[in-house]
Simulated assay, not measured.
Amino acid sequence: MDFGLSFEQQALVDSLEEFCKRELYPHESLVEELRYVPAEIKQEIRRKSRDAGFEGMNLPEEWGGAGLDKQTKMEAERVLGKPSSPLSQCMNRGVTGILFKCKGEQIEEYLLPAIRGERKDAFALTEPGAGSDARGIVTKAERNGNGWVINGVKQFISAADIADFIILIAVSGVDDTPKGPRKRFTAFLLDKSLPGLRVEPMKSIVTRGYNPTMVYLDNVRVPDSKILGEEGQGFNTANEWLYDGRVALSAHCVGRAERIFDMTKEWAGSRKAFGKTIGEFQGVGFKVANMAVDIKLGDLMVKEAAWKMDNGLMDRTAASMVNYYCSEMVFRVADNAVQIFGGMGLMEDFPIQRFWRDARIERIWEGTSEIHQDLIAKDILRPYRQ
């Protein structure tokens, strides 16, 4: 298992990191203040990232992308975890994996425009009464002639405010199974302009500019042609790219932790108290050591997870392990950084407080830490059940 980067891989990582430092970092304070990315900045980042060769880099070759293997992709995602999320989202790196289920006219209407960056999607699964328990969703799609009528509410939907269409999971019926009635889930493609579909902002203290929203559906009517994948296969369709999303989140956590650590090292190595640098005190030095070990382990877990995906060995347990560890890790790193920076760590003039706040959400989205712990334990102990 060789995790060393080739010359080409290292060149991509280095050029991407330089791009982020030059084109994204300078706008972070403004986006934090405004809670959105101004249109002119968004267009400038998009243009410059295209000129730099990053356009569609996560796409497979058959759709015009670079066809990166998972190892290279996750190295790139690690770098893209360092800048503010709404700014990195301005780079059109590819599309939501589930969109490759588009077929027929959907390809021209949704997939290709999304690949070209002309249309943006949002994924709507979570509901007020169904967060980690995704199968508890109640948003209902009822058959009506040759189409469907959808009613319900979605919550914490990222980027629906700036999306052009929404990939939505709804209950489309109930199947009788040996274990009793079981909901049937279907994925739909919904244009935001549809009558009865309304998006409302939620004011969050984290990831400002990459905002959560409420999505309300009141008798939204769509034809069969808006089903993504097959009717009743919504979860299967989504699960095919779930592992990729969890490992990408983990890579982002490692990248963000690295950026926090770089700033913390400099502070601990130069800030003086009682005649010496604060890093010379064990109370601070041990925190620095723990941060270094945490980041190293997270990086290795992401690399192993990417290797498993490249070799068809990824499973639910491994995906939950890397997600759980890295999301907890970045918060520990951020929390230690605040402690080392002291009062300055909580001042808005310093980015540490933003990293600290933003790190908190990593333990919730893509599955809470508790859900991942539960999945890991169930998978490990399954052979011992009677």
Rank of each mutant, 00 (worst) to 15 (best):
A273H: 07
V254G: 02
G283H: 15
G275H: 05
N239V: 09
K265T: 05
V247R: 01
K276Q: 14
L242A: 11
A251I: 01
E266D: 11
A238M: 15
V247G: 02
F286R: 12
V254P: 00
V247T: 07
F274T: 08
V247M: 04
G283C: 10
F274I: 06
R271F: 09
V284G: 04
S250R: 01
G245Y: 05
A248L: 11
Q282D: 14
F261P: 00
W267T: 03
R256V: 05
S270P: 00
I260M: 08
A257K: 01
R271V: 08
T264G: 03
V284Q: 04
L242D: 11
G279D: 05
C253F: 02
L242F: 11
T264E: 03
K276R: 14
I260Y: 02
A251L: 01
W241G: 03
K265R: 10
W267S: 00
I278M: 07
K272G: 06
A251S: 10
H252R: 13
W267E: 04
I278V: 15
R259D: 10
V254H: 01
L242K: 11
K276I: 12
E240W: 06
R246F: 06
M263D: 15
G255S: 04
Q282W: 14
E266N: 06
G269D: 08
A238H: 07
G285Y: 03
G269A: 12
W267H: 13
L242W: 06
G269V: 06
T237S: 10
A248F: 03
V284Y: 05
M263A: 07
A251R: 00
W267L: 05
F286I: 14
A273G: 12
A251Q: 01
F261G: 03
V288K: 00
K276N: 14
E240H: 10
W267P: 02
K265E: 13
T237K: 02
G283V: 15
F261C: 09
M263H: 08
G255E: 00
A238Y: 12
V254M: 03
K276M: 08
F281I: 10
Y243V: 06
T264N: 04
T237P: 04
S250A: 15
L249G: 03
K272T: 15
F261D: 04
G285E: 04
Q282S: 12
G279Q: 06
V247S: 03
E280C: 09
Y243Q: 08
R271N: 05
D262W: 08
A238T: 09
R271I: 06
M263C: 05
G269S: 10
I278K: 00
D244C: 07
A273L: 11
V284D: 02
N239L: 15
R246G: 08
N239C: 11
N239S: 13
F261N: 08
M263Y: 08
S270A: 09
K272S: 13
S270Q: 06
G279V: 05
E240D: 10
V288G: 01
R259K: 14
A268F: 00
T264R: 02
G285F: 02
F261T: 03
K272Q: 15
D262T: 09
K276C: 09
E240V: 13
G283I: 15
V284K: 02
T277W: 02
M263K: 09
Y243S: 11
K287D: 10
K276H: 13
D262S: 12
E258K: 15
A248C: 11
W267M: 06
V254K: 01
A238R: 13
K272L: 13
R259F: 04
G283P: 06
